Amino acid sequence: MPVVVKHYQPGQAIVRDGDRPAESCLLSQGFCVRSKTTSNGRRQILSIHVPGEIPDLQSLHLHVLDHDLTTLTECTLGFISHVSLREITRRRPNLAEIFWRDTLIDAAMFRDWIVNVGQRPAPSRLAHIIVELRERLKVIGQVQGARFEMPLTQEQIGEAMGITSVHANRVVKQLRDDNVLEFHRGSVRVIDEQKLLELADFDGLYLHQRPSL
């Protein structure tokens, strides 16, 4: 199956709201986000994507993209044409099932993000986002002890939580002052695991990482 490898800089659009892509991308290195922007220019980050994911797989069947996909860091992506993807899923139904499961997990994560942004106080929202990111990075071997990469700026943290960057700054400071987390140059270190989990109110069932589930 032909794959075209492309390299992107931080903050670069991969695909935009309204595009009609003829290919989907596999994220090989780096982090990217899906987002929507209101008419007055306010952006809501909808999800964070890590290596090994296909963040625009839905464009295989939804021909007009309804959100933006943007890099957070330097990224390497492999692009596969929709023609090739359709052909291989017809020949290999088991691969089609894997893609279908991936979209169902994607939907489960969206449901949890809605609850997180809509119902939890701001410190719990951030704790939940961080714990989720850590659990997903563990699966691909990108967590070293208590530290892992978390490349969102404070403005982007606010966009993920649905609050202003000023409010996000206060939340980050609170978690730092309470000795829950340490933030440092695109990474985070867990200081108090128990406090973090209590604050996050995290149940990882929606990630469906256990094969038996």
Rank of each mutant, 00 (worst) to 15 (best):
Leu85Pro: 01
Glu135Ser: 06
Pro55Val: 04
Ile129Phe: 10
Glu135Phe: 06
Pro123Asp: 04
Arg92Cys: 09
Asp56Leu: 01
Asn94His: 12
Thr71Gly: 09
Arg90Asp: 14
Leu62Asp: 11
Val83Tyr: 09
His67Cys: 13
Ile130Tyr: 09
Pro93Leu: 07
Gln44Asn: 13
Pro121Arg: 10
Asp66Val: 04
Glu53Arg: 06
Ser81Glu: 11
Asp112Asn: 15
His49Ile: 01
Ala122Phe: 05
Leu137Phe: 01
Asp106Leu: 08
Ala127Glu: 10
Gly141Ile: 03
Ile140Phe: 08
Glu135Arg: 10
His82Lys: 14
Gln58Trp: 03
Arg86Ile: 00
Leu133Met: 11
Val115Cys: 02
Leu46Ile: 08
Ser81Cys: 07
Arg120Phe: 14
Arg134Ser: 08
Ile54Trp: 10
Glu132Phe: 00
Trp113Met: 13
Glu97Phe: 13
Arg111Gly: 06
Lys138Tyr: 00
Gly141Lys: 02
Leu72Val: 15
Ile88Glu: 08
Arg136Phe: 00
Arg111Thr: 09
Ile88Asn: 01
Ala108Pro: 00
Leu126Phe: 14
Glu132Trp: 00
Val115Ala: 09
Phe110Trp: 10
Ile140Asp: 03
Asn116Asp: 04
Arg91Lys: 14
Thr70Gly: 01
Pro121Gln: 12
Thr70Tyr: 02
Pro121Glu: 12
Gln58Val: 12
Ser47Cys: 06
Leu85Asp: 02
Ile45Asn: 05
Glu97Gly: 06
Lys138Cys: 08
Ile45Glu: 03
Thr73Cys: 05
Val50Leu: 14
Val64Gly: 01
Glu97Ile: 12
Val131Ile: 13
Val50Tyr: 09
Val139Met: 10
Cys75Met: 05
Glu132Val: 00
Asp102Leu: 07
Ile88Cys: 05
Lys138Val: 07
Ser84Phe: 07
Leu126Glu: 07
Arg90Val: 11
Gly141Phe: 03
Leu85Trp: 06
Ile114Trp: 08
Leu69Tyr: 02
Glu87Phe: 09
Gly52Asn: 02
Asp66His: 11
Leu60Arg: 08
Val117Asp: 03
Ile140Ser: 06
Thr70Leu: 05
Phe99Val: 07
His67Lys: 15
Ile48Arg: 01
Ser47Thr: 07
Val115Leu: 11
Thr70Glu: 12
Ile140Lys: 03
Val64Tyr: 08
Leu85Arg: 07
Leu126Ile: 06
Gly118Tyr: 06
Phe99Ala: 13
Arg120Cys: 01
Ala127Cys: 07
Ile80Cys: 10
Arg92Gln: 13
Ile48Ser: 04
His67Trp: 12
Asn94Pro: 00
Leu60Ile: 11
Arg120Asp: 06
His49Leu: 06
Leu85Ser: 02
Ser84Asp: 15
His61Trp: 08
Pro123Ile: 02
Gly78Asp: 10
Leu72Ala: 08
Phe79Gln: 09
